[in-house]
């Protein structure tokens, strides 16, 4: 464990705290971008270059842009109150504390992992570099070719589903709860904010 790992680990936790506790959704989203980027740094330090690049490319570069796009499109950047339907805060904190304690116990205690697994390969693990695009690609497109194709199918289905869900029939202006009503609501909100 090097100094860099500790440093970036600490930064990651701080950024993740920002995701959970930031009042405004956009600040949450930006914290998440920072977290994802830092996780990519950890991937790179663990020798998984290809996955690190994918992490930035897919998560930080595509998914989060989409999230921020939706936040901006809907004008959702208001601090939100705690809802009555949610788990009470103290209960959630207790539950998460217990859960984290269990995980830490599991990681730090001997004998949780099957005997010998942790030690058997630990020596040579850091020597080889199985994280290059060539290595990952070879396994991905031979051993895992069927799941790979399924993932492609899943993405296609997701695209079709997303278009179906988000598509809105064009209605004449000023009728119903369509886009125009939404815009009216937004503009009145903005006037309120300016006041």
């Amino acid at each position: 464990m090097t100094f860099a790992m500790m440093f970036f680990g600490l930064l990651t936790v701080v950024a993740a705290l920002g995701v959970v506790f930031a009042a405004k959704p956009l600040n949450s989203a930006l914290s998440l971008v920072a977290t994802l980027f830092l996780v990519a740094v950890h991937f790179a330090m663990l020798g998984a270059d290809f996955v690190a690049a994918l992490q930035v490319l897919i998560y930080a570069g595509a998914i989060m842009v989409l999230v921020i796009f939706v936040i901006m499109l809907l004008g959702l950047d208001e601090a939100s109150a705690v809802s009555k339907f949610k788990v009470p805060r103290y209960l959630a904190a207790v539950f998460c504390g217990v859960f984290l304690g269990l995980l830490v116990f599991a990681v730090s205690s001997e004998g949780i992992f099957p005997v010998g697994i942790m030690d058997s390969v630990a020596g040579g693990a850091s020597e080889s570099n199985p994280g290059s695009p060539r290595e990952v690609g070879m396994v991905l497109l031979t051993e895992f070719i069927f799941p790979f194709q399924l993932a492609a199918l899943l993405l296609l289905a997701a695209i079709v589903g997303a278009v179906l869900l988000a598509h809105e029939e064009k209605r004449p202006l000023g009728k119903g709860r369509g886009l125009s009503a939404m815009q009216q609501k937004n503009s009145s909100e903005e006037e309120l904010r300016e006041v």
């Binding site: 270059d49 290809f50 994918l54 930035v56 490319l57 570069g61 842009v65």
Partner: peptide, 25 residues
């Protein structure tokens, strides 16, 4: 010299959008 050079550039290119988006917001 990275063995993921091209992916790295594409990843950085995909991050460039944040400045624009944030500025507008």
């Amino acid at each position: 010299q990275l063995n993921i050079g091209v992916l790295y550039v594409l990843a950085m290119g995909s991050l460039a959008v944040y400045g624009t988006v944030l500025a507008g917001w």
